[in-house]
Amino acid sequence: MIIAVASGKGGTGKTTVAVNLARVIGSPVRLLDCDVEEPNAHLFLSGEASERETISVPVPAVDESLCDACGECGRFCAYHAIVSLATKPLVFPELCHGCGGCALVCPRGAIREVDRRIGVIEIRNADGIVLVQGLLDVGVAMAPPLVRAVKAKLVPGEHTIIDAPPGTACPVVAAVRGADFVILVTEPTPFGLNDLALAADMTASLGVPFGVVVNRVGVGDGRVHAFCRERGIPVLLDIPDDRRIAEAYSRGKLVVDALPEYRGHFERLLERTREAVRAS
């Protein structure tokens, strides 16, 4: 079963849900930290990285001696990553999506692809949880290829938890696609509701079944719950606004270890998620 944990914005407790769920699900389990701009699942798990892999995307390199400045490459590229105005083309690697199209359309065979590094993947074994973490290099804006590379480390048949990037843009879509179920984490506040609505629309449009975890219940109001009732979205778990949870978080401790009374909460979340997957 592949469960993705996502959130319309950062700081809602998405990683808390992902790591605690990974702890209660039993081994073998793989936690894929796809929040590649700010991976933090490792803060809650011990263990040194045992494997490291550099991830690159192909970007064009132009051999100017072959190029006749015909401009085909620039006309083809939808991302303005290669530009030719009756001149030898300019390449903007940071905008390139690595589709390889410019090399294909170049009538002179002047374009070949070279690797541009975008980040690294680290794998560590943390007390029975295999954590695969992607880390985007500073200044790189191209998260989806790295997210896909992290997801390629998935082992079929193993329990898999995906910690998705926050938001509703391409990197999240790349992380959530192909999951059996998505858990959307939110807070019971007007902002939380707004972001949940966006995240729910995105997940629904991908055709992946989903449910909601409401974190810090006690702050805010009842509108998130009302929204879920109206839309027929199952609320899988309410996590109360408990100072001790925030304390455990700030010390890098798993809630289920630091506060054993919450273990049942996450086991119930798992059980309800399984039921929802079966029902879908």
Partner: peptide
């Protein structure tokens, strides 16, 4: 343009 607005505009004026 989501990205590359400046490049697009530069091509337009050129």
């Amino acid at each position: 343009a989501a990205q590359g607005a400046g490049i697009q505009a530069a091509q337009t004026v050129a």
